[in-house]
């Protein structure tokens, strides 16, 4: 016998997970939208560097809160910068 599935995800969010307290995080927002950056330049290592964690991987959208169009531009820019040794492919 299977239980009826919850209709939507919002109901699952309402359920306190584990303890009694629910954490309400501030809504992440896209930095590129906020700062009105229309073109992510691959030469801007300082900006790109903030989306490269220790390991040298591209920071996922779910962590940074970047919107999809900007994440796409960002990923492209990071890959270009890697090609010309402005950013690392990997860091041990």
């Amino acid at each position: 016998m299977s239980y009826p599935r919850p209709r939507d995800d919002s109901r699952r969010d309402d359920r306190p997970s584990g303890g009694q307290r629910r954490f309400i995080r501030a809504r992440k927002s896209c930095r590129f939208c906020a700062e009105k950056i229309d073109y992510v330049d691959y030469k801007d290592t300082r900006l790109l560097g903030s989306y490269i964690p220790e390991r040298g991987k591209i920071l996922p959208r779910r962590i940074s809160g970047t919107c999809q169009p900007h994440q796409r531009m960002l990923a492209e820019a990071i890959k270009r910068a890697r090609n010309i040794a402005l950013l690392p492919f990997v860091t041990a």
């Binding site: 030469k43 890697r82 040794a85 402005l86 950013l87 690392p88 492919f89």
Partner: peptide, 11 residues
């Protein structure tokens, strides 16, 4: 000319 920079990895 961006000038001399450290490379992110050796070439």
């Amino acid at each position: 000319r961006m000038g001399r920079r450290r490379l992110a990895y050796p070439i």
